[in-house]
Design a protein around this nucleic acid. Sequence first.
DNA 1: GTCACCCTCCCGGTTTTCCGGGATACCGCG
DNA 2: CGCGGTATCCCGGAAAACCGGGAGGGTGAC
Lengths: 245, 245
Amino acid sequence: MSDADDAFIRQSFDLIDGLDGLSDPLDVQKTIFDLVARCGFSYFAITRLPQPSDRLGPNLLLSVWPEGWLTHYDRVGHYRYDPVVRHCFRTTEPFSWNEAPLDPDTAPQARRVMEEAREHGMGAGYCVPIHDAHGFQGGISLAGERVEMTPRVRRAVHLLGLYAWSAAARTTSRRRKPGGRLLSARERDVLSCAAQGRTQEETADFLGVSVETVSTYLRNARTKIGTRNTTHTVIEALRLREITL
Amino acid sequence: MSDADDAFIRQSFDLIDGLDGLSDPLDVQKTIFDLVARCGFSYFAITRLPQPSDRLGPNLLLSVWPEGWLTHYDRVGHYRYDPVVRHCFRTTEPFSWNEAPLDPDTAPQARRVMEEAREHGMGAGYCVPIHDAHGFQGGISLAGERVEMTPRVRRAVHLLGLYAWSAAARTTSRRRKPGGRLLSARERDVLSCAAQGRTQEETADFLGVSVETVSTYLRNARTKIGTRNTTHTVIEALRLREITL
DNA sequence: GTCACCCTCCCGGTTTTCCGGGATACCGCG
DNA sequence: CGCGGTATCCCGGAAAACCGGGAGGGTGAC
């Protein structure tokens, strides 16, 4: 309720207002970092996540992160056990790192991740998970020696995280191009049809090609994604965002 | 940037701060409505959504809605064609009702929904979709004759919507009993297996039943959900949250 | 001007799923 | 005590999907 809070909130909104206009990811990074620093954090990272990957590096969008931490994190394979990452899959609410529960079966590894983070100057952190219509997409994490934010500042950070993430995803247009896609346009077409329950014949009709063509597309999609049948392929394509509902 | 905006934002944050303490849904409803009215809206609704339901009524959490609109909406079956609802499935970003795209195949029905809403005093609206780790969960819609909000107010409303929704969901403990589910446990099992690419035979092995049983489950699930084949059923079951990935 | 895709079509044979009948048994509700 | 729902199993024929080939034409890249 303090004036400091109000000032921070106003600045957050100012920043959010300004994000739309930015096109250089470094501008985004700098302005976000300024704000992040104002609430006591030393580091932050905005990252796309799940993806067929067990490393964080290739998925990082923007970050100001301790020297050597990322490479270490990836080399050791922390991604798989990081309780913060895991918790992101389950919740849409922002949370403090220490609130992330430890899975009983990977608790030792998880503790090690947190321990090593502490040694790198990140004794505490705050994470805003980002979900879209298909589930967990990524997140923004703030880190420092300690976290001390009023509930009100947390909420401002929550909102900031949502918009910062989309600005980061937009400006670092890593992928997104059809070149980055796995499937061809036609392959996506037939999978969309399949998802709607069409048979190959109906799909062929709908797309104005022969059944054999449709069959070929489905087969190619199967081998490309490495799936076992059409149902499996549709589900995976959905997860990979090759198609939408 | 105006003082009015700042005042609104401050009040939004005050309200959000206060939501945690409320346990009576009517208190939540009243305070939200006060705030909603301040940015020019006459109505609002907070609703849980997809669910095995083609009616909105049973899923409404809190609302201040025009007389007779809801019953009409449900009687006519608008839920299935409402472009605002449909758009909620695809996006996590708040949007104005007029930004919701019309699906080409249901455009006439969709236009009718919007037309009738207008006749009920809701010529414009603003919707904040709510998603959780499993996808679209519900939303909060504000409505009135016109929408005129500055970008900054929209963002405050966005944040407000997120917290109002969880407060509404928490206080109206309208729990969906497992009895409310459409499919039986076994039917869900076989669909999960199918989603992972298993054939009926493999599924039978996995579940320790005969292939015929698996086949029967799939068939029953098909007829229950009203789908055309396994792929279609899996997709729909996913949408209805009967199964998860 | 190859090379690599993509789009399109075709074939024959095999596997899988779908369809629409069954059947038995258990359980809870009224 | 039926009635409805679930869980389990069975059958035979029809339809659809899958498999592994082949093959021609287009386009863009190196």
